[in-house]
Design a protein around this nucleic acid. Structure first.
Lengths: 180, 180
DNA sequence: TGAAATCCTTGATTTTTGCCAAAAAAAGTT
DNA sequence: AACTTTTTTTGGCAAAAATCAAGGATTTCA
């Protein structure tokens, strides 16, 4: 039903058949840092990670990954330019590595596959617009409730301080919202 | 160079050849409201518009359109579900209408066209991630400066109160930022 | 072009949320 | 399991931005 899930399954099988490598990250280790070019996609087999950027005022959390998630510095992967994003393991994590050339070979290997990629990009666009609304929502309480409704799993997988950053509020504010 | 620009040009020619209709909106008139299904894409020929959603605390501005912009309730167009978005003319506007079936016919009519659509979706994804960072940036001043740098045109085309909403701040705050 | 409506600016006030600090709780490490 | 480190919670305070209100400036439209 969901293109990104179907594509993920197919790509994972394909990568396994090719003997694609795994990557294991220790807690706090970086998968990619600002300035390097992302040449892979990853599928999380275990553990959890976060994507963030640094700016003047600190860190901004953009996305989390845990078992089953796609993971990459998407703009860098797509454009070949250096990444603005950092990806860091929150806990020890194990990832399946899919190299860019393999990825595009797979996508280009049939109209069906390229159609799946289109669908996945369309889904991403829609999700991303939803995320924009989430982030623009005024009240911290509403932002919290939206996330709780949409991805309750996050609260089991990810420490609060990162969720707070993802919800653009301080950890203290999030902590207080969770009480009543 | 930029796929969305190339595709826009090609689609516009195609639509004109088909005799696609135009749509003229008066100031404040709605192109689409929440609940209706978007069956078209539009290219703005003149005027200006905004895309927004309503929530408990008021309106959230997601995007502007002016001469040359693509315009549609993207999630509704893609999924066929009712729109959450409103699109309203800020001033009298004239749009080229591209019907969904024509759009997909065009996209499917050659691998080159479908490749352009892929590129356009990829560009959208990257832009959208940039927009996410813009919105998450802590200080109103920085958000203002980022927009000023990235799309100075907006300030010539769009009333401040809408820009303020787009930058998630009150019109008063934006007004004060513009002084020093 | 002139009246009406809308929008922008400015100052005063209030609310919200961030920041700091310290204690409690949880998780990670050996 | 004990110890260390990290994270969460709680309270008090400060800063930032929203709201309210009113006057001035633009735009719109007949």
């Amino acid at each position: 039903m969901i293109a990104s899930e179907i594509l993920k399954g197919k790509i994972a099988s394909y990568a396994l058949a090719l003997g694609s490598p795994k990557r294991v990250l220790k807690r706090n280790e970086f998968l990619i840092s600002k300035g390097s070019v992302e040449r892979n996609m990853y599928i999380v087999e275990s553990g959890s990670l976060r994507i963030f950027v640094r700016n003047n005022s600190g860190e901004i959390t953009l996305r989390f990954g845990y078992k089953g998630s796609w993971m990459t510095s998407f703009p860098s992967f797509l454009t070949g330019k250096p990444s603005e994003f950092y990806i860091q393991a929150i806990k020890k994590s194990r990832l399946l590595v899919i190299q860019k050339k393999d990825f595009y070979h797979f996508i280009g290997s049939s109209p069906e596959h390229s159609e799946l990629w289109i669908k996945m990009l369309e889904e991403f666009a829609v999700q991303q617009l939803d995320r924009e609304i989430d982030v623009l929502t005024r009240s911290p309480l509403e932002r919290y409730k939206r996330l709780l409704e949409r991805s309750p799993t996050v609260f089991q997988e990810i420490p609060n301080k990162y969720i707070a950053s993802y919800l653009r509020m301080s950890p203290e504010t999030l902590s207080r919202l969770k009480k009543p």
